[in-house]
Design a protein around this nucleic acid. Sequence first.
DNA 1: TAAAAATTTAATTATTTAAATATATAGTAT
DNA 2: ATACTATATATTTAAATAATTAAATTTTTA
Lengths: 134, 134
Amino acid sequence: MINIFKALGDSHRLNILKLLTCQEMGACEIIQAIGLSQPAIAHHLKILKQAGLINSEKEGKIVFYTLNKDGIREFYKQLDCFLDELSCFSCSLPKPSQLRQNPNLCTEMGFDPEVCEKMIDEEKIIIKRRGGKQ
Amino acid sequence: MINIFKALGDSHRLNILKLLTCQEMGACEIIQAIGLSQPAIAHHLKILKQAGLINSEKEGKIVFYTLNKDGIREFYKQLDCFLDELSCFSCSLPKPSQLRQNPNLCTEMGFDPEVCEKMIDEEKIIIKRRGGKQ
DNA sequence: TAAAAATTTAATTATTTAAATATATAGTAT
DNA sequence: ATACTATATATTTAAATAATTAAATTTTTA
C-alpha cells in the first residue's frame, strides 16, 4: 500500500491517471499531453504500472495504457481497511497517555519500545468492510 | 490531497499513525516507540500535522498527539470523489485511442496537449458520494 | 531505415536524518 | 521575585539518501 501512496504522491502521475479517465492512450499521446520528456514519462508509467494503478497493452510499435480500475478499487478497499484499523470510523475517544498521570515517565524508564512496535510490525490487512460501490 | 499522499508514503509516518490508534501519545513516547532521533520524529510529526492527519495539544512541557479522525475521513471522502472522477466505480470501458485508427497520428500532428490539459488543471473536488461510514 | 518505447547514465532536486542549537516550560535554589 | 537547572520539543544546518529528469543508448516493430 505504501508504494501506491508513493505513486500517487506526484502531480504528474496524478495527471496521467486523470488523462486515462474514460479513454486509453498511447504513450506518445501521454508524452504530448503532460509535456515531459519521453524517458521521464516512461519512468512515471512504470511506477504507476508497478503500483497496479494502470494496465498496458502493446500493439505493434505502440503501448496503450488504461486505468487499472480493479487495482485502484483494491487499493481503495485496503485503505478503507487501514482506516478502520485506525478506528477512524468509530467515535471512540483516544485513551489518555500515561504521561498525563506521570509526566516524568519518559525520563524515569526509557519507555520500552517493544510494546508499541508489536502492533506496528504486522500489516495484516483483511478486507472486512464494504465491498466497493460498483 | 497530494500532500496527504506524500505524508502517507513513508513507513515511519504510517507507523506513527498506527501508534496513535485508540491512544494519545506524548512526543517522547513516539520517539521511543519508533526509534528515530528526536528531530527526525519532530519532522515527521510536522508533516503529518500539516497534512491534517494528526492533532497536537501542548500541556506543559509535553505535546500530546492524537489522530485527526475528521481530517482522515475528509481525505477518504476526497479520495472517494477523485476515484469517482476517474470513473473507477463505473463499469464503462475506456474509449479506444485515436492511434488505433491512425498509428501515425503522433508523428503527423504533434498532438495538441491543450485538449488533455484542460481536464487536468482544475482540481475541483465536490463531495457527492457516500458520506463516510460513522 | 524509421518510429515508439524502454533502459541506462548522469545531473539536478527533494527527502530524510542526525548533530547542534534554540525555545519553552517546570522545578529549585537563591 | 530572579536566576539557575533540567526536560521536552522545535528549528537550523549539513550530510546522506532517494526521486526526478533529460540526454544518450538500446530494443522492438513496421
